[in-house]
């Protein structure tokens, strides 16, 4: 009985705070975000998540941050692979996309190159759409060169966005992450 109790108690707590999709996190394709992370009185799960993460969370009126740990086919993001990030983003003043190490949050891009994508500094097609590539090997269009081995996370931060407030929240419009080739 004790074994079951400990497993359920700590297992559920760990699950709630790392994945959290049942407990206050929203999920759109591979992206997830904690909805109430920037409000003055968050629910207990969000409060525990904030304490465990120890990060500077964005206030609700500043923007919202999504993290992807897998591609759109639910496979863990791997630095050995080339990823195409394709699609539209919700209306925001600007957004940034950073590939980071899962354990300590440092950008994993090459130190002397660009560290991230910033929405106002991308090459776009005639209709305004963008094609982003994250890989170790040279890629076309907008490309971020990553380094190292193992898994990584993608962090998409939308600044000054109202996409998740209000009733008719337009949350379906986040880009997909497509795995192309792996070394």
């Amino acid at each position: 009985m004790l074994l079951v109790a400990l497993a359920v108690g700590f297992g559920l707590s760990w699950y709630a705070l790392s994945d959290g999709r049942l407990f206050g996190a929203i999920e759109i394709g591979p992206w997830s975000a904690w909805r109430d992370v920037g409000v003055p009185a968050p629910d207990p799960y969000t409060r525990a998540f904030i304490a465990r993460a120890g990060a500077l969370e964005l206030g609700a009126s500043e923007g919202i941050q999504f993290v992807a740990t897998t591609d759109s086919d639910n496979r863990r993001l791997d630095r050995a692979c080339r990823y195409r990030i394709d699609g539209s983003t919700p209306a925001a003043r600007f957004w940034t996309l950073v590939p980071v190490a899962p354990d300590d949050g440092r950008p994993i891009t090459r130190a002397d190159g660009p560290l991230d994508f910033q929405s106002s500094r991308l090459s776009r097609a005639g209709d305004g759409s963008v094609e982003l590539y994250v890989s170790k090997a040279l890629s076309p269009q907008n490309w971020l060169e990553i380094t190292g081995d193992g898994a990584f996370d993608l962090v998409l931060t939308l600044y000054d966005t109202s996409s998740l407030s209000g009733v008719a929240a337009d949350v379906a419009a986040l880009p997909s992450i497509i795995r192309e080739t792996c070394a």
Partner: peptide, 9 residues
Amino acid sequence: GAVLGGIIH
């Protein structure tokens, strides 16, 4: 066990 687990959680 599950109930106790819930309390621990």
